[in-house]
Design a protein around this nucleic acid. Sequence first.
DNA 1: AGTCGCGTTAATCAATCGATTAATGTGGAG
DNA 2: CTCCACATTAATCGATTGATTAACGCGACT
Lengths: 200, 200
Amino acid sequence: MADLNDDNARERLLNAGRYLFLRQEYHRVSIRRLAERAEVNSAMIAYYFGDKNGLFQAVLLSYIDPMRNAMLERLVQTPELTYAELFRYFFRYAPRDLMRLIIRNALFEPDEHWRWILDKLLRPLLTEVEQRFGRVLPEGPLQRPEQARLALQSLLVFPILGQTLLESVRGAPMDDTFFDDLADYFGLLLDRAFAPETDQ
Amino acid sequence: MADLNDDNARERLLNAGRYLFLRQEYHRVSIRRLAERAEVNSAMIAYYFGDKNGLFQAVLLSYIDPMRNAMLERLVQTPELTYAELFRYFFRYAPRDLMRLIIRNALFEPDEHWRWILDKLLRPLLTEVEQRFGRVLPEGPLQRPEQARLALQSLLVFPILGQTLLESVRGAPMDDTFFDDLADYFGLLLDRAFAPETDQ
DNA sequence: AGTCGCGTTAATCAATCGATTAATGTGGAG
DNA sequence: CTCCACATTAATCGATTGATTAACGCGACT
C-alpha cells in the first residue's frame, strides 16, 4: 500500500493532471503549472510520461477503468432498470468531471486526442453498457433504435454537460435534489412516450 | 455598399475571426494566424479592436443580431408550432457553428468570456424566444416548467452540439435527412409524452 | 505646397510554451 | 567502500505567444 501513496513524482503528477485537465482545456494547462502543482520538477513529466500528451492520456486511463467497473457493478445489481432509475443513477454517479474533460478535449478538437479517446475509452464502454442493458422498445412508431438512443443520450448527457451553463441561467445551483426530481421527471416522460399503444 | 465589402482590414479581420474562432478554441487562435488569414498586419487587431479579446467579442456580436432576427422572423411566421416543426426548424436553421463556439468558449471556461456572453448574447435571446413562443403544457404530472424546458433544451441542443461526436460513433455523417427524421421522431416523442391524460 | 490624420508596416518587447540536456542526488547490491 | 541504476535537479533550447512602438504612406483639405 505504500506504493499507492502520493509522495512519489509519478503519482503526484497524475493527481495534478487530474486536477488541472479537468478544469482547463489541454493547451491552457502548461507543463510548468502541472509540475508546480505537483511540487515536482517539470522534467519529470518527460521522464515518466514521455511528454505532456503522455501524461494527459495517463490521466484519462486512470479514470476510465474505475468508471467502467463502478458503472457496470452498480448497473448489474439492478438489471431491470426503469427509466427513472436509470436517470437517477446516471445523474448521481456519472463522473461529471470526466465527461466534461472528454467533451472539452475531444469533441471540440477532434483532430488531436479525439480518435484515441473514442477508440480506447468511449466505444468499448458504450458497447459494453449497451450490450448488457439494451432495452427493447414496445411496438409502435417510436421503435427506431438509433433515434431512441439519441433521445436517451440527450436527456442523460445534456443536463450534466451543461450544468454550469444552466446554473448560470437559472441563477441557482443544481443540487442533488434537483437532479433527483429531474430523473423522476425524465423517467415519467419516457415512460409515457414509450408506453405501448393504447387504442386507435 | 462599398463600405460593406471585405477589402478593408477591419472586415477582413472579422471574417478571419469568424473562420478561426469557430474552428478552434480561443487560446489556440493566435493573433498572427488571424492576421495571416486576413492578409493584414497583426497590429491592425490592436488598432481596430484594442486586443485579441476585442476582436473575439466583435465576432460574437456580428453573429448574434442576425441570428436573433432570423430566428424570430422565421418563428413568427408559424406562431402555432408543433414540436416536430420546432425540432425541424431548429435542426435546420440553428447556427451550429455559433452554438459550438459559445459552448466551447463559455461553458468550459466560465471565468473568461462566460459572463459577458451570457449577459450580452444568450439571456436576451432566450428570454425573448421564450416570451414569444412559450407553450403551455396540458394538465398532468409533466406540467413542471423548469424540467420540461430542460428536457426540450436537451433534445434540441445535444444532437447539434454532439454532431461530431455522434458521427464518429456511428461512422456516418448526419445529413439533413437524418436530422429531419430525428425532428419527426422527437416531435412524436414529446407529443406522446405531453399528451393530455387519457383515462385511468 | 504644406500639413494633418487615418491607416498600415516592420521590428521588437517580455513572457511563456514544450522539450531537452548535463549534472547531481540517492539508496541498495556486490 | 564502490558501483550502478534509478530518480531528480537546474539550466537552457528554439519557437511562439499577445502586445507595443516608431516610422511611414497617402489622400484630403487649406
